[in-house]
Nucleic acid binder design. Structure first.
Ligand code: MN
Ligand code: MN
Ligand code: MN
Ligand code: MN
Lengths: 234, 234
DNA sequence: TATCGAATTTAACCATGGTTAAATCTTACC
DNA sequence: GGTAAGATTTAACCATGGTTAAATTCGATA
């Protein structure tokens, strides 16, 4: 468990709440009771009670009926848990041969069980990686996280050359689908067509693929610069 | 968490109770409430309540005022947790460079957090090890454990040649002491003298050491056969 | 500006795993 | 075989984290 207040340990539940609030906050702040409850798969009543507790611990500031924001102390713990999660994912993938669709579930429990010693060791063994196997940045030990907002593949226009930088890590089926299409991290993609239902036709290593919304919304990309983009793509 | 009853998961508390009962049982059966409470560092009242619960789950058979014994189902879970613990210890030691006095504490938490997938992977990565870094046998995946009772170094007589096979893993200070004296697993030892306070003088790689009770009771040995024992030891 | 529906909180539960203090059982000993 | 000490259980709590159902609040809309 992560420590706070110079030494008091936080429970697994508190850690998962703070992590969820952190992630929801980047979409809409303050975080609503219902959004939190939905994300954690619990009742709104349970979320309300925990929000009051977390406010009492000074880990969030919570205004009844108006949602919550992390305090600095809460953000520190959230980032520590996210750091554990993504380091563990990368370790499972690189050092233990897990496929990228299997690491999230395993890391979800391990993130609460490892010591600072363990964290430091896997960080070193991996050569201080900057991202998890899904491309998400790993917060540094000092709590700094550089997290850029990227466009999704679904937001691309026909004619775009892009590179896969991140993928949503939640749905193993989507990740397996991407593996089958050879759409790993850093793969270059040409968007050949947009269709009326928002699906896309793309080229991956010369092979055309029809990509529907659930997939295209799960893939985050950056545009290729002129000198990176191949001249033709017949 | 370990599963039982074709799928229901056991809590960390239940797992630690079953493991403790398993270990106490090998010393005295049935296991008393006070022995269990002492081992787990909780009150006797808490132990009583949990014994009733475990009996209700059919994981132990418990007779009030007369102690508890594991059922087959309870033993299966205990061995599964011990397997996790010892495999994790060996992985921390062999694959991650942990010293043997640091692995027990880390494994104590991780043993409840890993999946069967994780267990199988570290087993394979380690080449199916038979013991933990302290020489304790690792239960097999099918629940079989061969556990011989060994004599302690403290029980040896002057003139004995012995080999270290196991060490008690609980006290990091003892383990560090053994490391400093070069008394790792499989080290050969000559017992040169027994003293009145039950301390011993031993030879380790030619160097004499004075060994007191807390150490000598933590080291388990087997006698060397005639052809293994060096002819002289001046 | 009053109202109504959705979001949220409160209330009353429950399970788990802990505590201390009081009651009760067992057993060894006289 | 009675008794007293020690072991054990019971009783009354507490904290955490969950549930459903009822009450309350907010804010968009008429
Ligand atoms: Mn988690
Ligand atoms: Mn990830
Ligand atoms: Mn444990
Ligand atoms: Mn061990």
């Amino acid at each position: 468990m992560v420590k706070f207040d110079s030494g008091r340990a936080t429970s697994q539940a508190v850690e998962d709440y703070l992590k969820a609030i952190y992630k929801l906050q980047s979409v809409t702040a303050p975080v609503t009771t219902s959004a939190l409850a939905e994300k954690l798969g619990i009742s709104a009543a349970a979320a309300t009670k925990m929000l009051k507790q977390l406010d009492g611990m000074r880990l969030i500031s919570y205004v009844p009926y108006h949602g919550a924001n992390l305090t600095d102390a809460g953000r520190r713990i959230a980032l520590e848990v996210i750091r554990h999660h993504r380091l563990i994912e990368q370790y499972l993938h690189q050092a233990m041969g897990y496929a990228w669709d299997q690491v999230d579930a395993e890391a979800e429990k391990l993130e609460h069980a490892i010591s600072e010693e363990f964290e430091a060791r896997i960080d070193e063994l991996l050569g201080y990686p900057e991202t998890c196997p899904h491309g998400d940045p790993i917060p540094r030990a000092d709590g700094v996280l550089v997290d850029e907002r990227l466009q999704t593949l679904g937001e691309c226009a026909a004619g775009d050359w892009v590179r896969i930088e991140r993928v949503r890590d939640t749905d193993p089926a989507v990740l397996r689908d991407l593996t089958q299409r050879q759409m790993g991290l850093h793969t270059q993609i040409f968007v050949s067509d947009r269709h009326s239902d928002n699906s896309l036709t793309i080229l991956v290593a010369g092979t055309p693929h029809l990509v529907h919304e659930p997939i295209s919304a799960s893939v985050f990309v950056t545009p290729l610069t002129a000198d990176q983009a191949p001249a033709n793509h017949g």
